[in-house]
Design a protein around this nucleic acid. Structure first.
Lengths: 191, 191
DNA sequence: CCCTCTACGCTCTGTTTCGGACGGTACTAT
DNA sequence: ATAGTACCGTCCGAAACAGAGCGTAGAGGG
């Protein structure tokens, strides 16, 4: 009853169950691992405790397997679906947060030595290229499946961000940030 | 002495003091607020407690104002500078983390209604345009100051990411993700 | 039929982080 | 004096977090 604040984790749990149907925490963990987990890390322990909390709030319903492992399966209640939909329909004024160790190091590098930046850039280029490859593979595997289409859209954002980062670090490695700026301007202009 | 694990917050404190010279926690808080704070949020309380911890580890030195407010000023010790430089010189294999509520909502929107996406995109476009304006203003104000140059580089990454996000949400609003892909390909190709 | 090995599935614990409420203290303008 | 407004700092409960660790099921081998 009382208005309780739901966190991002709560909505991930609600959302995942909405997309997959009734699920066990382990299934949630796996599903998160190869989807939202790529852009927002959730420690798995949370995916075990959070459903309980949500069940306590009446947003999920719990069924315990009769025999064997007695797995816990959670399913959405009407209240749960409503909470999710309210959230989806509510405005989002928040700006994203990045947590990028590389960016921090770059910012503070004045206090270190220039060759750090070279190495940093090289590492980051590798990181982002690898991640792009992973994403591309997902597109390849699921891109043709019309059922998976809605979830592919987020991937597109991920790719866009990855490429942006890759361009930046590459330009930095080449010592040519000016070209980066120019390209950005070109993209921003229509046509 | 004992190998103690330093967190990102620790390095932000060390780094800030390295860049600004001896500082009070309040000054750190302000400095963070209009620099790294833009891409990585640190709750201010941390910027009060962390310096104490670091002083305990011998990485910072504490001077307390004699009279008046008895402000605490922290300065780098040799050990502190060394720790910072080690960190700057060490490889970074971590990939950045995003925390983007909008992206979550987009991912789960299947469970909601399509017009949510329209509104979401509109909001995000506004967010990112505003942020870009803020960044541009910084470039304008400090771009000519050669002293501030090194810190401007990070801004360039920020701008690149912001523009990437803006392009994505704009394309989504226009229902034309295909153009986005095409533009990305064009950029990735040399020349 | 028993054993072992591996993947599966889950829990627990001690630390940090987090947000934000709250409470002082100094300066400024009347 | 006095009120107002920055300025400056602390505290606390609630989440988040990392990761160690442990039971369980089923497969394959002896």
């Amino acid at each position: 009853m009382g208005e309780v604040r739901l966190s991002a984790t709560s909505y991930v749990v609600l959302g995942m169950i909405a997309l997959r149907g009734p699920s066990t925490p382990y299934e949630l963990k796996r599903a998160v691992g190869h989807s939202v987990g790529y852009f927002w890390h959730f420690p798995h322990a949370q995916l075990y405790s959070e459903p309980d909390r949500l069940a306590g709030l009446g947003l999920l319903e719990l069924t315990v397997e009769e025999r064997g492992r007695r797995r816990k399966t959670y399913s959405l209640t009407d209240a749960g679906r409503a909470a999710l939909q309210d959230w989806l329909a509510s405005p989002t004024h928040e700006h994203f947060q990045m947590r990028d160790i590389a960016e921090l190091k770059l910012f503070f590098n004045e206090a270190g030595s220039p060759e750090n930046v070279t190495a940093l850039a090289r590492d980051q280029i590798k990181q982002h290229e690898e991640r792009i490859a992973v994403y591309e593979q997902m597109v390849e595997r699921f891109g043709s499946d019309p059922h998976a289409q809605p979830r592919m859209i987020t991937l597109e954002l991920g790719l866009e961000m990855e490429h942006a980062a890759l361009r930046f670090w590459s330009a930095l490695a080449d010592g040519d940030l000016e070209r980066l700026r120019a390209a950005r301007r070109r993209l921003a202009e229509p046509r």
